[in-house]
Every structure is written in structure tokens, then in C-alpha cells.
Write a protein that binds this DNA or RNA. Structure first.
Length: 425
RNA sequence: GCGAUCAUAGCUCAAUUGGCAGAGCACUGGACUGUGACUCCAGGGGUUACCGGUUCAAGCCCGGUUGGUCGCCCCA
């Protein structure tokens, strides 16, 4: 008995016919833009040693604590499907001793990530992330280059209504003292915190700051502000980031309660947040920041780094909500009448395709009417029919599907005609 | 991990107190000898998500499972 097999929960197919074309547009745009910024593409395996994520992302984060796809392979190793892209990139950076070969390394990656979560709008168990990693510079110019990329990228996609939220988390010199005073403040108000935040107080106290519940918000507002506790180095860094963003005319808002869920961030953190209702409550499109200690903590040289991760599903949702079309319909559709014209049609079609034109036909043949319906269905710009008369005269009536008089065209001159037509699109 | 809600043709959805499972779109063919869209006609398509129960009789009532959607948590 054959049983129906369906796809795995939370993991989706992307089909051609509008959907995959939107993805390709995003990917093309990203690759082209990264090339301009001097970032090379890094490809790492989907699976890593589980310990990599425990040590980088953090044992107490939700991502590692309950969302990883972890399994044991036949050799008894504990492996995990990657839940994010930074840790594998850093692993590769260290493993290939890249910093011995060049002082600055700038990589981007694009591929599937996996988190075992309950699904909702814009959140899936397999999702695609686009991200970058810039190693080797502590200069705020590097932070701002990353932000500038994202700003340009969203602009190139035609997405407006995405706002940049910016914050700093300090570093080893100032964060511990601030965090201690934060915890002390929260403990004083412990009774008024929601149940979740009571727990966060122990596991990840920074997250109390962006809790959405009313009472936690009021406690958070009265909490000691990181901006008042920054050491001189962190203060200067943050001021410089803001100044450089201003110089590039990139709008942003400082959000002192912006905290990220991964443990490795230092100094700059940011999120790009969309307001479009198609995302529901999944409004964060991209997030990232600086992680100056991560490379060293994973056993590499003391190397500062900045990067971001961006959710492609959410981006594609936004893009498709704009109603834009990304398909490239055929420029010419060829119909044939009989066996002799079928041969001629295939030869002509192949030649035009080799010359770079998008040409379609109905591989089933069939009545002329059905072939013309097909031409209409696939959105061809022009259509022509090959039969006895055309083979004899070497000329065909080229029909413009959108309307207008058919134009006689020599079969030998089809390429030239289509080239000219492209110019008038 | 918690909660709400839903599941009928490829898609969007109907089906009266439980009583023969339907329409639109899409697909195929024809009306129309070699020219699509508009119109008309016809046709193919279903174990009503799955498993069990109640009943003479279940798409409908009851229990469970799986999956979708939305919210909480968290994140991209």
C-alpha cells in the first residue's frame, strides 16, 4: 500500500511561477551588492559539532537550550543542524587560519538554518538566512559599512518602511558592572515582573529590558541605562558609529532596550524592523552587531568582528506583498502545424535560445488554438506560427500578444527583430 | 513549551434538523480548416487530512492523531 508522504513540518517548498523568482531576485541583488562591497561568499556545511553552538551562541539561550536539531551520528559524535550562521563562519575562519593570510576578512553567506520552533507568521523550522562577517577591524567604520550594506540592500529591493534600531551593550570593561546594577534593580522590583521575567532574571537578565508586558516595561524604564554606564572606549565607539551613520545619511533610532538573544555580542547591536502587517509580530527582518570576543573564545586569535543575519523568508514576504512581479515571460512563442514545421520550429527555437532569447513552445503540439492559448498563458510577448506557407516563403506573421497588427518578419531575421523589440520594452 | 482556530477537487469555497458530495477558477476538447484573451457547450478530476466511536445512515455528532494559520515565548 502506498501512503501519502508529505513535507516535514515547518519546512517549505518554493515553486517557480512567481515565488522562486522573488527569491532569485533577492539572491541576485545580494550577491551583486556584496561583490561591490568586497565581500566573498563563504559556504559551510549545514551540520556542525554541537559544542560549537553551545560555546558561541550560549547554553542558556533558547536557540541552544531548546531549538536545536541535535543528533548523534554513527560514530557517536553529537552534531547539530546550524541554527545560525556566525558560529560556523567563525569556526571556518579559525580552522583555515585566515587571519595569518590577511589582516581583514569580509565574508557573506546565504543558506538554510534550522530551529525547532512552533511556527507562526514569518517563522519556520528551516529558514534561509543571508548574513555577513567582517573580521579584523575595531573601527566604527566597519560597523557602519555593514549597516550601509543593509541599508543599500533594502533600498535596492525597493523596500521602504524598514527602520534601523541601534544600541550598544558595552564590553568587558563596562558591561559587567552595569549588568550587576541592572540585576540589583530588577531584584528590587522582582515582585512586579511577569513570570517569564522572573525566570529571565536568572538565565538572561538583559532580556527583561525588551519584555512586552506593561509592568516589566515600567520596571525596565526605571532601570540603570547602559548609556550612562559605558566606559570611555565604548562611548567613543558608539558616538562615532552614530556620527558616521549621519555622514552617510542613514536614518536610525537609538533604542536603549534593544537586546539580542545571542550571548556573543559586544558594543554595537542593531535590528532592522519592518512595520508591514504581513509579517504579523515577526517584525525583525535583520539583526546583528559586533562580537569582538567571539573568535578568541572559540580558540582563535584575538580578532574583532561585526556582522548581521537577515531572514530571507521575511524579506520575500515583504517583497511579494508589494505585488511586484519577478517572472521573466518568454519573448517569443512558436507554434507549429505539422511534422515538417515541427522540425523547423525546433531548429529556430534552439538557435534563438542560443542567441540569448527567451523562447517557448508547447511540447505537446496539438491544435493551433491550444498552442495559442498556451502562448497567452505563459505571457509571451510575441507569437508566430510555422506551417507550409512559412516554410516555403521563409517569412511569418509575428503576432503581438498584447494587441496590434501582426508584422511580417523573415525567419532569418527573427533575432534582429527581437533585439529591436527589447529596446522598446 | 503554552493558547486559539481551521482541514471538502490542483486553487477559493458551498452542502438545510445527520439523508444521493457541489459551484467558480484552473486543466482538456469542441462551437470556429491557419491564430490567444470575450462568449457558449462538454469532459476529466474526491477513500470529505488520518484513525477509531455513536447511528438504519456521518463531510456534519464524539474521542484521538497529523498538518495549516494566528497569538504568547523567542527570534530571522
Amino acid at each position: 500500500m502506498s501512503q501519502k508522504i508529505s513535507g516535514v513540518k515547518g519546512m517549505n517548498d518554493v515553486l517557480p511561477g512567481g515565488e522562486v523568482e522573488a527569491w532569485q531576485f533577492v539572491e541576485r541583488t545580494a550577491r551583486e551588492l556584496f561583490q561591490r562591497y568586497g565581500y566573498g561568499e563563504l559556504r559551510t556545511p549545514a551540520v556542525e559539532d554541537t559544542a560549537l553552538f553551545i560555546r558561541s551562541v550560549g547554553e542558556d539561550t533558547d536557540i541552544v537550550g531548546k531549538e536545536m536539531y541535535t543528533f548523534e551520528d554513527k560514530g557517536g559524535r553529537s552534531l547539530s543542524l546550524r541554527p545560525e550562521g556566525t558560529a560556523p563562519a567563525v569556526r571556518a575562519f579559525i580552522e583555515h587560519a585566515v587571519s595569518n593570510q590577511e589582516p581583514v576578512t569580509r565574508w557573506f553567506y546565504l543558506g538554510p538554518m534550522f530551529r525547532y520552533e512552533r511556527m507562526k507568521t514569518g517563522r519556520y523550522r528551516q529558514f534561509s538566512q543571508l548574513g555577513c562577517e567582517a573580521y579584523g577591524s575595531r573601527d566604527p567604520a566597519q560597523d557602519v559599512e555593514v549597516l550601509d550594506f543593509l541599508w543599500q540592500f533594502l533600498g535596492a529591493l525597493g523596500l521602504s518602511g524598514v527602520r534601523l534600531h541601534l544600541n550598544t551593550l558595552g564590553d568587558d570593561a563596562c558591561r559587567p558592572a552595569w549588568q550587576a546594577s541592572l540585576v540589583a534593580h530588577l531584584r528590587g522590583q522582582q515582585g512586579t515582573l511577569c513570570a517569564d521575567c522572573q525566570r529571565r532574571l536568572e538565565t538572561n537578565p538583559l532580556r527583561v529590558l525588551d519584555c512586552k508586558s506593561e509592568q516589566c516595561q515600567s520596571v525596565a524604564r526605571a532601570a540603570p541605562d547602559i548609556h550612562g554606564a559605558l566606559c570611555n572606549g565604548c562611548r567613543a565607539h558608539f558616538e562615532d558609529v552614530k556620527r558616521l551613520l549621519g555622514a552617510l545619511s542613514i536614518p536610525f533610532e537609538v533604542d536603549p532596550r534593544l537586546v539580542r538573544g545571542l550571548d556573543y555580542y559586544t558594543r554595537t547591536t542593531f535590528e532592522f524592523i519592518a512595520s508591514d502587517p504581513v509579517l504579523g509580530t515577526a517584525s525583525t527582518v535583520a539583526g546583528g552587531g559586533r562580537y569582538d570576543k567571539l573568535v578568541k573564545s572559540l580558540g582563535g586569535p584575538d580578532t574583532p568582528a561585526v556582522g548581521f543575519g537577515l531572514g530571507l523568508e521575511r524579506l520575500v514576504l515583504l517583497l511579494r506583498a508589494t505585488g511586484r512581479q519577478f517572472t521573466a515571460p518568454p519573448e517569443l512563442f512558436v507554434a507549429w502545424m505539422d511534422d515538417a514545421s515541427r522540425t523547423e520550429a525546433l531548429v529556430r527555437i534552439s538557435a534563438l535560445r542560443r542567441a540569448g532569447f527567451r523562447v517557448e513552445f508547447d511540447p505537446r503540439g496539438g491544435s493551433l488554438k491550444s498552442q495559442m492559448k498556451r502562448a497567452d498563458k505563459v505571457g509571451a510577448r510575441f507569437a508566430l506560427v510555422l506551417g507550409d506557407a512559412e516554410l516555403k516563403s521563409g517569412e511569418a506573421q509575428l503576432k503581438q500578444m498584447a494587441g496590434g497588427e501582426p508584422v511580417p518578419v523573415k525567419l532569418a531575421g527573427l533575432g534582429e527583430f527581437l533585439s529591436a523589440a527589447r529596446a522598446t520594452t
